[in-house]
Computed example of a mutant assay.
Amino acid sequence: MPREFALFGILIPTLLPLFILSIGLQTLLDRVLGWLGVYRMVWHPSLARLCIFIAIFGALTLSLYK
Rank of each mutant, 00 (worst) to 15 (best):
V42I: 13
F19K: 00
I52C: 12
I56E: 00
L7A: 12
F5S: 08
W35E: 04
L33A: 05
L21S: 10
F8M: 10
A59N: 11
L28I: 10
G37W: 09
R3T: 15
V38Y: 10
K66S: 14
P45W: 07
R40K: 12
R31H: 09
I52E: 01
I20H: 06
A59I: 12
Y39Q: 12
L28S: 07
A6S: 15
L47S: 12
L62Q: 11
A48Q: 13
A6Y: 01
V38L: 14
L62I: 08
L18G: 03
I54Q: 04
L36G: 01
V42P: 08
G9N: 10
F8P: 05
R40T: 07
Q26P: 02
T27W: 15
C51W: 12
L16W: 14
L18T: 02
Q26N: 13
H44Y: 14
C51L: 15
I54R: 01
R31N: 07
P45Q: 12
P13W: 08
L18V: 00
I56N: 02
L50P: 06
F57I: 02
I54L: 12
L47W: 15
F8C: 14
L33G: 00
I23V: 09
L15I: 04
M41G: 06
I52F: 08
L33C: 09
F53V: 02
I12L: 07
R31P: 00
V32C: 07
V42S: 09
S22N: 03
R49W: 14
G58A: 13
